[in-house]
Design a protein around this nucleic acid. Structure first.
Lengths: 103, 103
DNA sequence: CGGCATCCATCAAGATACTG
DNA sequence: CAGTATCTTGATGGATGCCG
């Protein structure tokens, strides 16, 4: 649908998509996270959606997934370098939101 | 659906929504814009959608609309102060996109 | 524990036509 | 010129259940 180069939209497509930005934010402040940790940190995001968003983020090269084939299963999500480079932006968005949006 | 305070999501809801960020970006670089100018600047955004997004942005207090009741009709969209405060963020998002997304 | 599959409701967005 | 109205469809997200 989008034909033209549009860096803004390209970027926003990556970090939007409901909760993606929050996931990045949480991993960046909280450190590497397990799936269940993210569930606790973002309780309003359903399990299904969380999994979908994580997959998208992984495909986009923003986060990395390490699977430890233990029992019980354990995974760990970390930011890639690309993901890290997004942190300043995510933080400034967060700050702007704190200042200009009241909830 | 979103219960918890979430400044990031609040902010992204404002600037995302397909083309909103681009509209802000265009007005910020191009200066005050008429409806038809925005159409030319963002040809992939349909007329209908453009109108909707402009209305949302106006409601959010990010842009202002001046209507000149001449014939033919003329309107002009400008950024509010709140809108201006978003520019640094929009620009950094744009720069990030230029660097990290290839289209 | 960390998901995926399925079904379903909702919604966002395109196409087209019409108006002050 | 600057929109609005209507209709339709594809994508999004919730709920639930299953599986390694």
């Amino acid at each position: 649908m989008v034909r033209k180069d549009c860096p803004i939209e390209n970027t926003l497509k990556l970090i939007n998509g409901k909760w993606k930005s929050v996931i990045i934010y949480q991993i960046s402040t909280h450190g590497p996270c397990h799936f269940s940790e993210l569930q606790k940190l973002i309780p309003d995001c359903s399990k299904r959606l969380l999994a979908l968003q994580l997959k998208d983020l992984e495909k986009a090269g923003i986060i990395q997934k390490q699977v430890y084939s233990e029992v019980p299963l354990k995974t760990e999500y970390t930011l890639t370098e690309v993901g890290e480079s997004l942190i300043p932006i995510i933080k400034s968005i967060n700050q702007w939101g704190e200042k200009y949006t009241k909830n």
